[in-house]
Every structure is written in C-alpha cells, then in structure tokens.
C-alpha cells in the first residue's frame, strides 16, 4: 500500500481569505513570521505501488475528477 499526498493551495494571484485571517490573528497575538497561506492536504492510498501509474491516476483525479479547481487553485503531488 502506498499513500501519496496532494497539497492544494490557492493560486498565487488569488486572494486567500482564510490565510489572511489566520495570519492577522496570529500576528496580533505576538507570533513572529512573514506570511501565511492556507490550503488543504489530501492523503490518497493506492494498492498499486508503481509511481508512474499512481501519478497518472492522481492527475486524472485532479484534472478530470475535479479534485481541484484550476481557476483558483494549484496542486503539488508529494510522494
């Protein structure tokens, strides 16, 4: 069994309202950092452990299956 991570973040030009609110609240409470953006992380498990096959399937899930919204999001596959 292989578990692969998919990180889905808002595209850089898109306003990240969640990240903004968390960032402002944290900074208000005195924590020190530059910026914060919020997205989501998916963990998908496959019985087939062939990296290429899995990558192809994930890309299908993303682009055809609607796992992300290309208008406002970008993704990264993390093995």
């Amino acid at each position: 069994m292989m578990t692969v991570g998919i990180k889905i973040m808002p595209r850089d030009v898109i306003l990240d309202s969640q990240g903004r609110a968390i960032e402002e609240s944290m900074k208000n409470n005195g924590f020190k950092f530059e910026g914060l953006r919020a997205g989501k992380f998916l963990e998908v498990s496959f019985s087939n452990e062939n990296k290429e096959d899995v990558k192809t399937e994930i890309e299908k899930m993303l682009k055809i299956g609607g796992l992300y919204n290309p208008l406002i999001e970008k993704f990264e596959i993390i093995f």
Partner: peptide, 15 residues
Amino acid sequence: SHGDYLRCGALAART
C-alpha cells in the same frame, strides 16, 4: 468570529 477560518471559534478563543 474571524470568518470561522481555521476552525470555528479557534481564533476568537485565543483573544
């Protein structure tokens, strides 16, 4: 509160 961002009530609880 705080748009319900992160988790509902999470940011408000720490004010």
